[in-house]
Computed example of a mutant assay.
Amino acid sequence: MANIQYYDVILKPVVTEKSMGLMADKKYTFLVHPEANKTQIKEAVEKMFAGTKVKSVNTMNNDGKTKRRGMTYGKTAKTKKAIVALTEESAEIEIFQGL
């Protein structure tokens, strides 16, 4: 596995209707590096967002979708999502405020 730094683990937040509903339970959804494991994701969230304490991390791997361009077929890139649950006394993540 490649040497992944904590700032390379989290790629971007996932903003969907379902993920916004999970924010009430202090669960945040991120698109993460495909080779990152749960401990790396936990460490990255706690370092990038001050005052947060991670309770649990759930991950899911998504295969690339089959796309067609003319007569040729191909696949989009594989992705990995992580749902990070914070503890009750943890601070909220600021990037989701005002959404």
Score class of each variant (00 low, 15 high):
residue 15 V to N: 09
residue 68 R to M: 05
residue 96 F to H: 01
residue 64 G to R: 08
residue 82 A to C: 05
residue 26 K to R: 15
residue 23 M to L: 11
residue 80 K to E: 06
residue 37 N to R: 13
residue 27 K to G: 08
residue 54 V to T: 01
residue 6 Y to L: 14
residue 49 F to Q: 01
residue 17 E to V: 04
residue 5 Q to P: 03
residue 15 V to Q: 07
residue 16 T to N: 09
residue 27 K to V: 15
residue 91 A to C: 08
residue 65 K to W: 05
residue 99 L to Q: 05
residue 56 S to P: 12
residue 99 L to F: 06
residue 62 N to M: 13
residue 99 L to D: 01
residue 83 I to A: 10
residue 8 D to H: 14
residue 85 A to G: 01
residue 55 K to M: 04
residue 85 A to F: 04
residue 59 T to M: 13
residue 61 N to V: 15
residue 37 N to W: 05
residue 11 L to H: 09
residue 75 K to Y: 11
residue 8 D to F: 03
residue 38 K to H: 05
residue 93 I to N: 10
residue 90 S to F: 11
residue 34 P to L: 10
residue 4 I to M: 02
residue 74 G to N: 13
residue 42 K to S: 14
residue 5 Q to D: 15
residue 58 N to Q: 11
residue 9 V to L: 05
residue 71 M to I: 15
residue 60 M to G: 11
residue 7 Y to H: 12
residue 93 I to D: 12
residue 77 A to N: 10
residue 66 T to Y: 09
residue 28 Y to W: 02
residue 10 I to M: 06
residue 61 N to A: 13
residue 96 F to R: 07
residue 51 G to T: 12
residue 69 R to H: 11
residue 72 T to P: 00
residue 39 T to W: 00
residue 46 E to D: 04
residue 43 E to W: 01
residue 25 D to A: 11
residue 33 H to L: 02
residue 34 P to V: 13
residue 80 K to Q: 06
residue 97 Q to A: 03
residue 38 K to L: 11
residue 10 I to Y: 05
residue 78 K to G: 04
residue 51 G to W: 13
residue 53 K to I: 12
residue 85 A to Y: 07
residue 58 N to K: 13
residue 97 Q to F: 03
residue 11 L to P: 01
residue 28 Y to Q: 08
